[in-house]
Nucleic acid binder design. Sequence first.
DNA 1: ACGGTTTTCGCCCCATAGTCGTAAACCTTA
DNA 2: TAAGGTTTACGACTATGGGGCGAAAACCGT
Lengths: 220, 220
Amino acid sequence: MVLQVRAGELQVLLWQRAQEPFADSWALPGGYLEPGETLEQSIRRHLAEKVDVRELAHLEQLETRSEPERTPDEWQLATAYLGLVPSDADPRVPDDTEWHPVDALPPLAFDHESIALAGRERLRAKLSYTNIGFALAPGEFTISELRDLYGAALGHDVSATNLQRVLLRRRVLESTGRLRAPGPTGGRPGALFRFRTHALEVTDQFAVLRPPGPARAFVA
Amino acid sequence: MVLQVRAGELQVLLWQRAQEPFADSWALPGGYLEPGETLEQSIRRHLAEKVDVRELAHLEQLETRSEPERTPDEWQLATAYLGLVPSDADPRVPDDTEWHPVDALPPLAFDHESIALAGRERLRAKLSYTNIGFALAPGEFTISELRDLYGAALGHDVSATNLQRVLLRRRVLESTGRLRAPGPTGGRPGALFRFRTHALEVTDQFAVLRPPGPARAFVA
DNA sequence: ACGGTTTTCGCCCCATAGTCGTAAACCTTA
DNA sequence: TAAGGTTTACGACTATGGGGCGAAAACCGT
């Protein structure tokens, strides 16, 4: 599943199935695994038919579903992946493919609704303790723009003051020194920031039971 | 993979392969998926041959590995699971099966070393922000005993004072009102505690960007 | 009664997050 | 140029929660 913040909402890329089962209903993009292919290679290959995969700033494995009831006829295992597209990209998508707000999903095929919601929760959790925001944000942005991105992805308002202070202290963000020109309505120009790194790092050391020494940063 | 704290160390259950490939080397217990079977049903079935699965206090899916190089001859996908056994259980295991400290693993077959280490990291992370300790601990225990369990699983010393204060505040632990008789060397008898619930709950709301309102507890 | 041992608990410090108010920097319009 | 509106930046204060430490409590043995 591919997520992007579009028009102030967290949206997911869906395509309309042409064939049975679940003809005409919406589904997450994907497809079969070819022999000798890695799961990640496979999902990238299938996504490439729907969206420019170079826009994919992050891709990680979610869960493997194996319930026999999840598919009507033959038994199929499915390994779900979560992909993220920065909000400044507007990839061309085929005619049978559309973005839909995760908060207002149409009826989905198979167990895809459950997968989509699980992906949203994974994103929300990681926004709080990793630097995964780099995969949702443009290369440079003001704190207000980042606040709106986080708000859309998390589903609730966040404070720009806190966001800036926390992400700077964790060294997730760094200042570019440049300013963004104010909009037509005026206002003080916002300072432009960028994510210090575009590789996933855990930035919040879970409280209790912290090992002695400086905070580690490890990839998850 | 099955983990248990034994003799003050975090140990993993391994069995010695009798057949090629990797004959005589150690491997994580597991086996093939049967048609119509859930992955979780399958891993429970295979584990049942090695250990009393009723002792399994927790079982969760880890990651699905698909690299073609992970198996020598035919291509095999593997979905790893993490199982936990409380420290007061001492399940009978077959002759070809042994517990090994995760910090001193023998050479393992396939990519099982990588899986074992990933499982240990998952456990360590969840110890800090969930109540997953219930799956490592006996039904009742003193804070000192729990401190030793956490220390073994985390790989570093933890403070009994902090552990008690934090887990009580998060309402992970509750007092039983009873005391444990002191050992032969004397000392003040320790108060007995238990985990309030034996279902996995996230107890630490990741800091920043917390939604308004009281802390939620949700299953992951 | 008196050390030795283990557990318990209160106290203080510090790091980090949340809130709020004010100042700064820009726009448009008069 | 001045004034009012808008947006961002930033400091001050508060609240929460974890870490460290030492004293007191409760048991053992001699």
